[in-house]
Design a binder for these strands. Structure first.
Lengths: 119, 119
DNA sequence: TGGGCAGTTCGAAGTTCGTAGAAATAGCAA
DNA sequence: TTGCTATTTCTACGAACTTCGAACTGCCCA
């Protein structure tokens, strides 16, 4: 339903990415997730209702900007910086400003299978 | 009316810029104007109604992406590439892809001044 | 097995956005 | 002035978006 299955790599459009980033709440989310590496949906955004957050995370996921993995009762979200950089070189830095990338959380091929991201 | 006179350089927000670019018609316009230098509103977009075009040009202007100057009976629009580059270094290249800029000397340091005032 | 927490889905309400016809404006030339 | 061309403004409308409460699902633990 959400993934029209295009043979990979052409999947995410610049329009979708720009639209996803062109929202104050989502831009804030992206900044936080970039800075912190992996964050649960709600933890750093107590001022935003959960359903609203869930919606924004979803938009970011569908744009290919964010990856989500299960972790027991919660889910951890991380920026797909390498994938985004590969697809749109320089975009993240240009939008967010060059910033201290988290070294703590490495994005490996294992956790990020070839540009797949169901849901 | 369109330039609320804020002490310069803080005037255009990344949100407005991203929103302006996050539309297929406007992205097309930006590509054309970047490639051609200066274009009249309607000339290269005969397939789009003029009022629609005017609307999109206005959005681009308000975002600070485009400049318009009168030229007799018509108006010529141009990309404010240097201004955008100064404000959001690398953004245009990231969104549009590195492209044949009108030949000008590239400076390394000057192109990425201290990241001030974003958002 | 029941309770609780983390997230998602659904539905509704309100807002913004894109489109485009019609009318209005501005510059220029005959 | 009149006419012509380029562009904007006005206006309307539907589509898409944002927000958020309520209900629901999934996972863990006592």
């Amino acid at each position: 339903m959400e993934r029209p299955s295009r043979s990979s790599r052409q999947k995410y459009s610049i329009i979708a990415v720009l639209k996803a980033l062109a929202d104050p709440v989502r831009l804030r989310i992206v900044r936080v997730v970039r800075e912190r590496g992996e964050v649960p949906c709600h933890e750093h955004f107590r001022d935003i209702p959960k359903s609203t957050l869930s919606h924004h995370w979803r938009v970011l996921r569908l744009a290919g900007l964010v990856h989500q993995r299960g972790d027991g009762v919660r889910r951890l979200n991380s920026l797909r910086a390498p994938d985004v950089d590969a697809r749109f070189p320089g975009l993240l830095d240009a939008v967010l400003g060059q910033a201290p990338r988290p070294i703590s959380v490495r994005q490996t091929a294992a956790r990020h299978p070839p540009l797949r991201d169901r849901l």
